[in-house]
């Protein structure tokens, strides 16, 4: 499984790609997969993160998503923010072709 978080990360969220179209999704508190990071459930601490990761299993088994993994986030006044450049790009689309897709719909994430 891909490692995109770091040891000792305080806050983590769970992401995967949707099987049918590969689109990036996040697991929510009510066990839905949302395209918005802002709807993601954020786990605090190692144990909560492991429990969150375990909740991906049914969706892998029923072929809703592929390649689920945890990644580090920060909770800020204006919402949840991905800690790495990689996850920020997954969240908000490429930092190029800002006329298209998520990168056009989520202005301000790529500053």
């Amino acid at each position: 499984m891909a490692q995109h978080t770091r040891k000792g990360a305080q806050f983590q969220a769970l992401t995967a790609n949707r099987l049918s179209d590969g689109i990036v999704v996040y697991l929510t508190a009510d066990d839905r997969w949302s395209e918005s990071l802002q709807e993601a459930e954020v786990a605090e601490g190692k144990e909560a993160a492991e429990a969150l990761l375990a909740r991906a299993e049914p969706s892998v088994a029923d072929n809703t998503v592929v390649e689920p993994y945890l990644f580090e986030v920060a909770k800020e006044a204006d919402g949840i923010r991905a800690a790495s450049v990689r996850e920020t790009i997954r969240q908000a689309g490429p930092t190029v072709r800002l006329d298209l897709g998520k990168q056009a719909e989520l202005p301000g994430v790529h500053s």
Partner: peptide
Amino acid sequence: PLRLMNGVYLQLHAY
């Protein structure tokens, strides 16, 4: 392995 024999990769945002 089957999709990889047909040029289909899973990348960051999509296939």
